[in-house]
């Protein structure tokens, strides 16, 4: 069954097709929700809520306007943001900071998605949101500002801070690594 057939069947509320879609796309969507959630349990809640939204709104999806995968990802991201809006959104700077120009060790280019996810997971939630939306999903600052209900300038500054924070984490990990080697 291709995507178009799957969409048509899901639009007709066919349980088998809906289940097939869950089986086919949930690993990808779970990966996205994990990037936004503080833990796996939270990520599952996001995924669950996102999929319910998918099936309730699938009749609005037009295959001519875009790919199913992109549409699904967008809905999961929106579900994640809704979850975050329920919590108090705080974008203040947290402790760590880094110099303006940091060279990231080449070894980081060898990191896989799991390790990178752990790295990004160390970012404070506000930074992580903007970093995910901007760098991974490719949203513009205007879109991020609309999604998070903040100013565009705030989105830019949050991203800069997120980058610095990430660099600081990398530096910290590097230092810890060398310190452990020295011992």
């Amino acid at each position: 069954m291709n995507d178009n057939q799957l969409i048509r069947a899901c639009q007709q509320n066919d349980r088998t097709a809906q289940r097939l879609m869950v089986e086919q796309y949930s690993p990808l969507l779970y990966s996205i929700s994990l990037r936004y959630a503080p833990d796996a349990s939270f990520a599952k809640d996001i995924l669950q809520e996102g999929l319910i939204r998918v099936f309730k709104n699938i009749h609005q999806f037009d295959p001519a306007k875009g790919k199913l995968k992109s549409w699904l990802c967008k809905i999961i991201i929106n579900a994640a943001l809704t979850h975050y809006k329920k919590l108090r959104y705080d974008t203040e700077v947290y402790g760590l900071d880094a110099p303006d120009h940091v060279e990231i060790p080449d070894v980081y280019a060898q990191l896989g998605a799991e390790e990178l996810m752990k790295l990004i997971g160390q970012l404070p939630e506000g930074y992580r949101l903007v970093f995910n939306l901007s760098i991974i999903e490719g949203y513009s600052h205007k879109e991020i500002a609309e999604l998070l209900n903040i100013k565009e300038a705030s989105s830019r500054s949050q991203l800069q801070r997120a980058r610095k924070h990430l660099q600081a984490i990398i530096l910290k990990e590097e230092n810890e690594y060398y310190e452990s080697r020295a011992i």
Partner: peptide
């Protein structure tokens, strides 16, 4: 992350 999937 483009093609990253987490089994569940």
């Amino acid at each position: 992350f483009d093609t990253h999937q987490v089994p569940l």
